[in-house]
Design a protein around this nucleic acid. Structure first.
Lengths: 325, 325
DNA sequence: TCAAAAGTGTTATCCTTACACCCATGT
DNA sequence: ACATGGGTGTAAGGATAACACTTTTGA
């Protein structure tokens, strides 16, 4: 109760660095070139002697390693679970990781990325059930819901959760067609982990009972608990863009309203109503027309807009509070 | 870019434990009985060998030291700034603190608290400018705004902030009567810290230029960066209670609607419209009447209600989305 | 009977959602 | 001319915010 007692421990900063390209949100991953080595998010040490704050340390190691200029940076969560770092061939007591979300654009020149063995991968490779833009993902009914329903048939008495498994399942995945909340990315992943349905759980020694026959993998796995950090990042970004104008960090200087909408849809993983979205954008006054027109749109040329950075100073700017459907 | 590199470092868990009593939100502080020692939030070590997760560690040290049963617990932020821990008489390299918000009730029997040298203090002692229930706090016009305005007259070119000082001031404190956003607690405190106007900043060696004559203290100080953690906690709670039913953790099992409103108002630091609040509560169906009546209310007896815990299971329950005025 | 607090009814306004159609360009 | 995507007007319904008055108790 007095002062903090000290325990030596090690801290890693792990970054979910997001960019959007070709209507697909992408995440910077590293470690792909080593055969058999699983992909992971870029992560670096926090050395309190070298850097004054986490954020400075993060920006430094990202810039050093990828020559990537990340704009928006935000702390996500600090994960301290033992067990979540178990991995074959990896030793050492790295226990705590501070997760960060960073927004950037895919660089025109990716030499620096290649040199670092890194690249941008579509995030829906890791979360195929999160992309509803082409309708309800087939993997839900084909694999996820049946497996989770089986797992939720009973709730062990020793389980300390506030809610029974069935209720948690319903809250995270909705019931049938409706009730899907695109922001519950982490809740869904955690359920899959607890049920032993994702590779990371098996790796950590969970879900042995259910996984007698080796099931189809549910999305691509990542090292350590990086997929959990990515889930947190997606959830945060999906939520944040509704009340703070952060999408613009992912767009070029000039963009059409359709590009803006497609970017938002790519992140949210669902379609938005065109007219309402445009009215919404207009009402926020977050953008202004440049006067230029985009050529080659395939149809009628679209007006180009730019983000009005000055609104940030003049009032507490909200994001794009898009609603349902 | 490969695996996380390791750096030995120390981690403390710091808890902002909130309860509401007599229409005043209170925060558990310790260290008061030692003459001259500044108050601090309860904090404990994180020992990865003893506890599987941060939350378990937190619950354990709180229960051990105060015999307090905290219900709702949520991670706030992980602070890693060097400089923010400087304090006379305190040595050692405690660098990283993981802040937590916990909700509880003031125990009927506070022997265990007293034994631990802890007690609940009204949080507005530390943030007098955050309580607008009796109108705009006098300290704003009398001390805070003039001092900040002077500080914001110029923005040093070397300052890396995204916005000039004047703009940040306006966003955090509003302009004049309107524009106050009760959720910007942390932004306001950080501005005061940066401007060297709070004791913690002077302690850390900031704000020497401005503080030639020793100014009146702006709220009571806390040890280390605990006031910053408290600011984060207040902001989070003010925000969270609007979209998740967490207030009920702070109320007794049975309560009147006025008690509920007073509790929400105490946290938000402002008054709410009675009729609209009641309609709001009714529309959420978060509470049900017990059938009993509260006696001794001073006037007409009020109906007693209880929180319907079952709603948590049946649907994604929002909080009390109270609006303006 | 009066003070103190509980409790209710109604209306204007704005925001959200949904609807369907016209416009400008390239091929 | 037609395919492709850009761009707009409008109306219904619901949520929000503001309004003032009646009821029940204790002193």
């Amino acid at each position: 109760m007095r002062g903090p007692v000290r325990t030596p421990i090690e801290i890693g900063l792990t970054a979910a660095i997001v960019a959007v390209e070709e209507e697909s949100p992408r995440i910077l991953v590293a470690g792909a070139d080593r055969a058999g080595a699983p992909l992971g998010l870029p992560s670096g040490p926090f050395d309190a002697l070298k850097h004054r704050t986490f954020e400075i340390a993060l920006r430094t190691f990202v810039a050093e390693q990828t020559a990537l200029a990340v704009g928006y940076v935000e702390q996500l969560y600090t994960f301290g679970d033992r067990g979540r770092h178990a991995q074959a061939g990896d030793t050492g007591p790295h226990v705590v990781s501070v997760g960060y979300l960073a927004l950037t654009r895919v660089p025109a020149d990716d030499k620096a990325l290649k040199a670092a063995g890194a690249r941008f991968e579509p995030w829906y490779r890791f979360f195929p059930w999160e992309d509803w833009r082409k309708g309800r993902p087939a993997i839900l009914n084909a694999a996820i819901i049946p497996a989770l329903a089986a797992w939720a048939k009973t709730t062990p008495a020793r389980e300390q959760a506030a809610l029974p498994r069935r209720a948690r399942l319903k809250l995270a995945f909705g019931d049938g067609a409706s009730g899907w909340d695109e922001e519950k990315v982490l809740e869904r992943y955690e359920l899959l982990y607890e049920a032993g349905l994702v590779e990371e759980a098996r790796r950590d020694g969970r879900g042995v009972a259910l996984a007698r026959k080796k099931p189809a993998p549910l999305g691509a796995a990542l090292r350590f608990d990086h997929r959990r950090i990515l889930a947190t990042a997606i959830a945060r970004l999906r939520s944040k863009m509704k009340y703070r104008p952060v999408v613009f960090e992912l767009l070029d200087e000039e963009f059409t309203l359709t590009e803006l909408q497609r970017t938002v849809e790519a992140i949210a993983g669902r379609h938005l109503h065109k007219q309402n979205f445009r009215r919404l954008v207009e009402s926020t006054a977050l953008v202004e027309p440049t006067g230029e027109m985009a050529t080659k749109t395939g149809g009628r040329p679209a007006a180009l807009y730019r983000f009005r950075r000055d609104v940030l100073a003049e009032r507490p700017a909200a994001g794009l509070r898009f609603g349902g459907r």
